[in-house]
Write a protein that binds this DNA or RNA. Structure first.
Lengths: 217, 217
DNA sequence: ATATGCCTGTTGCAATTGCAACAATTATGG
DNA sequence: CCATAATTGTTGCAATTGCAACAGGCATAT
């Protein structure tokens, strides 16, 4: 399963085992609802989700919790924080019973020159770069004015990721609303309107777009 | 001046010269309004702003331009895109007469093991990691509901960066509105209200907070 | 089967916001 | 110094949105 992570993709079994050693890998199980990191904690290792799902949120200045990202199988969380060995008021929670492979950055930073270490360094940096680009997309969604526009942008991105007009989102309505930065009931309302207009159908967290919502698809 | 960039901070003059060579550094001047990269272009080098300022925006699905970031002296732009050698619909514009040091990632990715190269790799990765954390803050601002809340969060961050209650922002009102994802006139209105309430004073792009806007300062 | 709790949809209402148009103020260029 | 452009502030109005409260559906546990 970890081969799905770009950090390990394409490694031979021996290389993979060496990589695990280099990164002090430790697999752990976490029950749904378990807090993997609370706001003031540091993060000694970053996580690769093997199974289940994890939410990254941030403690609001007013103490409320604000959803930053959902991390599914094959995806990672906390690399930036772990690499910098800094603290940030991030909260990480298991949103489903999950297995997580915990990895340490230390081995990437020590001076060794072996081929594997160099490859992992490149891959790690590429992961961060890719995350940066994805966050640009997220910002673009949030900066839009209306709920309709946010939904268009969000669903379009889902279509792109899924490679088809039918897909599931890893959120319930409340989570989706938090992710888009809108009120939950207002989101339900807008989704209803869009369904009435024949733009899409949905059931729970599964959506099916009837056509491209945006021009230039 | 480039010493202000974490990529070069603390290097000896000789190391610095070697680093410039390694990164194929080229300094260029750009007039205000010049487009450094339009939406479909690739980005063969990333930029370190020496003087002036640069705006990174993104082509909206509807073709409108959406402000993602402002880059001031000592800061960099385009590292992620350049490192991945991918294309993304980012638009980069000089918002003032500027001098930019253009740097290439190639030298970081080739296998060499010399000390300087390793140091630059570490620093480059750290830069990306830091950017990731800053983008989290930005997302947190944008995800807030009301203009008042966005302003509180934005101004609080400015105070933190400036280290004092008085600071300038690198935007005019229109840019600030775009950065916060709100209407320009609505932003002016809200700022007026806050001034009337005695929370702050401002003139053009200079602000002075009267006190911490948020509890727990 | 029934009860309980969680998630989702609905709706009225008040407040906020975007929009547009215009006034006022400040830069810019000749 | 004047003319012109650019930026900022103001305001009325309509539309969107958040809020709150509630109803129905679905799942789980007993």
């Amino acid at each position: 399963m970890p081969e799905r992570c770009p950090l390990f993709a394409g490694l031979s079994p021996e290389q993979y085992q060496s990589a695990l050693r280099l990164l002090s890998a430790q697999e752990k199980s976490h029950a749904r609802g378990e807090i993997l990191k609370s706001a003031p904690d540091p993060l000694p290792a970053f996580g690769l989700v093997l199974e289940g799902g994890v939410a990254v949120s941030m403690e609001d200045i007013d103490g409320r919790e604000m959803l930053l990202n959902h991390v599914g199988p094959g995806q990672t969380f906390g690399e930036a924080l772990c690499y910098l060995e800094e603290t940030a008021p991030l909260i990480i929670t298991a949103v489903a019973d999950s297995r997580v492979l915990w990895l340490r950055c230390g081995g990437l930073k020590t001076p060794g020159n072996d081929e594997l270490r160099q490859a992992l360094r490149l891959r790690f940096t590429a992961m961060l770069a890719r995350r940066t680009l994805r966050m640009n997309d997220r910002i673009q969604i949030l900066a839009r004015g209306s709920i309709r526009e946010k939904l268009n942008a969000f669903l379009t991105e889902c279509v792109r990721d899924a490679g088809g007009l039918c897909f599931s989102v890893p959120f319930d309505r409340a989570g989706m609303a938090a992710y888009l930065g809108v009120d939950r009931s207002a989101l339900s309302r807008e989704l209803s309107h869009m369904r009435q207009e024949g733009l899409l159908t949905y059931h729970k967290n599964t959506f099916a777009l009837q056509m491209q919502l945006t021009k230039g698809g």
